[in-house]
Design a protein around this nucleic acid. Structure first.
Lengths: 226, 226
DNA sequence: CAATTAATCAACTAATATATTGATTACTTG
DNA sequence: CAAGTAATCAATATATTAGTTGATTAATTG
């Protein structure tokens, strides 16, 4: 009934769909987004994405079956990481399409930032220029492991959780540009809120490391500790 | 129970997953692949992808709901087209990931081309160079509408269906490079088989228009007829 | 304005996917 | 080698999806 060409095509598109199925669940996309920042254990990934351990494990196995992530066991822990930088590009392409084509994304973002005025840097190009020139203090508020996996050159690493205790490490007068995982990560939003509250001149950089990398920005990667 | 950050993230990733869900079905990917070549009616898309009309219509509506495609009615026909060139890039990124990460793709391809030796151009770079220089006859064997929507500069358009009747349009001595929709389209495979059978010196170019476009190749687009 | 055609809709079945729970495996450490 | 921990597995309930069939809508044409 089916001719050989049709069998061939069905088989090929079925393979392509394995990739699509892997990225068809919100939670798996969140996991991928996290893994774009740095490799992590199942437990940490589960916590970050508000999943139960078993559920996170299952989602990660789906991603692994589609070869989008890899895992290896180190002692008691299983470390998951992206299989390929292309996976990160896939995620970014999907994100860009959602941003440009789905009006809901903009709505959700606006609603969330409602009442937190000035979270959008007024002049993004100028801000990026100053960041590149080092004319401002750049603050990375992600967990240290993510900072180590890749950060803006010269950026200061103070994870949000420690920020309140380490305010003295920050310049009281200079402008502070805080960034985190990207436009949908709330760490930098909370950091800027706190810093402004304490009298600092802080602004938020929406872009995450992967966005900057894609824009040709240089990225500093820590030497991998033995 | 859920904090506002979690609600925000869930809402955002749910939107991203709309894109993922749209590309999680083999048939929808096939439809997108076809639409990367040119816009078409539901009927034609259904036929090309071996779907029933109703089923094709439903899949296209899913793609439309995810804003990956657009449709407008022209008289009795509804014409579907890609909403954005980025959709084509999304498809290509998925295809590249599948090719590089899923061993099955290579297997399926090998099995299909088994017994049809020499379907892989020996020296791809050199071949592309000669195509670019016009040192060979470039033959586009896709339907005319697809040729019109974008083709290699100077390429001759002879749809596969007409090829047997139009052999006299081809140079008997010069090398002929046939191409179609891309590596998983069988039109050029069939064309090259037939041409070799008839004594022509024919080779197959695996890349499709979108691949060449992504590689920086110039593409000729026919003026849109009123 | 009846017949034709293209596309969609509606209802249904079969197949898959998700999240939860509790049990199990695998490794580490005292 | 027993206890503790990280991760996976297995079983289940629920929800979602794909494909089929037949009916319906909308535009076109004689």
């Amino acid at each position: 009934m089916k001719n050989p060409n049709r069998i061939f095509k069905d088989a090929i598109y079925e393979q392509f769909a394995r990739i699509g199925k892997a990225v068809s669940s919100p939670k798996r996309l969140e996991l991928l987004d996290l893994l774009c920042q740095a490799e992590r254990t199942v437990e940490v990934l589960a916590k970050e994405s508000s999943l139960t351990l078993a559920n996170a494990s299952q989602h990660l196995q789906v991603l692994r079956a589609a070869r989008l992530v890899e895992a290896d066991k180190q002692g008691l822990f299983v470390i998951y990481r992206l299989a390929d930088q292309t996976v990160c590009e896939l995620f970014r392409t999907m994100r860009m399409l959602a941003e440009s084509r789905l009006a809901e994304v903009e709505q959700i973002k606006r609603r969330f930032l409602e009442g937190r005025e000035g979270m959008e840097p007024v002049d993004r190009e100028a801000l990026l220029g100053r960041v590149r020139e080092g004319a401002v203090t750049v603050l990375d508020v992600r967990p240290v492991e993510e900072y180590n996996a890749g950060h803006i050159p010269g950026a200061l690493s103070i994870p949000l959780k420690e920020l309140e205790l380490r305010l003295s490490d920050l310049p009281p007068d200079q402008e502070i540009v805080a960034y985190c995982r990207g436009p949908y990560c709330v760490l930098s939003v909370q950091a800027v809120e706190m810093l402004r509250d304490k009298g600092f001149h802080a602004v938020r950089l929406e872009e995450g490391i992967q966005d900057l990398r894609a824009m040709g920005f240089p990225i500093t990667v820590e030497e991998r500790a033995k």
